[in-house]
Simulated scan of single mutants.
Amino acid sequence: MNVKTTVTLSDEDLRFAEELVEAGRFPSVSDVIGEGLARLRLEESGEDDPVAGMADEIRRRMELPRDQFLPWDGEVIAKRIKERLAQKRGE
């Protein structure tokens, strides 16, 4: 169920939201706000974000000396990420 409410945005925030709509990334300013709330809800819930896990893994690997870079194997990487997420969830 949707509930209509009024929010106050700074000129800068409104301009940014309107730019996202104009760029076709969102159908409306309301959807921009909704996405922001959904992301905050996910962050607050402590649930793991698989994309953030991938970003962390990439950052970790980029800190290695080049001769220690791991070969790219998408299936292996996906398996490792799934295992780490399962560990964090206590599965």
Rank of each mutant, 00 (worst) to 15 (best):
L70M: 12
E57S: 04
G46S: 07
Q68C: 07
L85R: 05
L42Q: 08
V32M: 14
S30E: 15
V51M: 13
E35T: 04
L70S: 01
D73F: 07
P71K: 13
S45T: 06
P50F: 11
D73P: 00
E57I: 07
W72M: 06
L20W: 06
E75T: 02
L20D: 01
E75I: 08
E22M: 10
D56T: 13
A78M: 08
E47F: 11
A55V: 14
V32P: 01
V51R: 12
E47Y: 14
I33Y: 11
L40D: 03
R60S: 10
G36T: 09
E43C: 08
W72Y: 12
E22V: 11
P27C: 04
E44I: 10
G53R: 12
V21H: 00
R25H: 13
L70E: 07
V76Y: 03
I58S: 00
V29R: 05
E35A: 09
V51T: 08
R41D: 05
E47K: 11
R80D: 03
L20T: 01
I58A: 09
G24Y: 06
R41Y: 12
E57K: 04
E63Q: 07
L37E: 01
M54T: 07
I77E: 06
R61F: 10
A38Y: 07
D67M: 08
M54S: 07
E63M: 14
G34L: 15
V51S: 06
R41S: 10
M62K: 12
K82W: 04
V32T: 10
R84S: 01
W72N: 04
A52P: 01
D56K: 14
R80S: 00
L37N: 03
E19K: 05
E83Y: 09
G24S: 07
A78P: 01
R39C: 05
S28T: 15
S45G: 05
V32Y: 12
D31S: 15
K82G: 00
R80L: 02
A52N: 06
E47N: 07
P27L: 12
R25P: 01
E43Y: 12
V76M: 02
P27N: 14
L64V: 06
V51D: 12
A17Q: 02
K79Y: 11
F69H: 08
L20F: 04
Q68I: 08
A55I: 15
M54I: 13
P71W: 11
P27E: 13
A55L: 14
L37M: 09
E18V: 03
I81C: 03
E43F: 15
P71T: 13
I81W: 05
E63C: 05
R61K: 04
D67W: 12
D67S: 12
G74C: 04
L64T: 06
P65D: 14
L37F: 09
F69R: 03
I81S: 02
D56P: 01
F26Y: 15
R61T: 00
L40T: 00
L37S: 00
R61P: 00
E57G: 01
I77M: 06
W72L: 09
V32H: 09
D56R: 15
G74I: 04
G34W: 15
S45Y: 10
E63A: 11
P65L: 15
D31W: 12
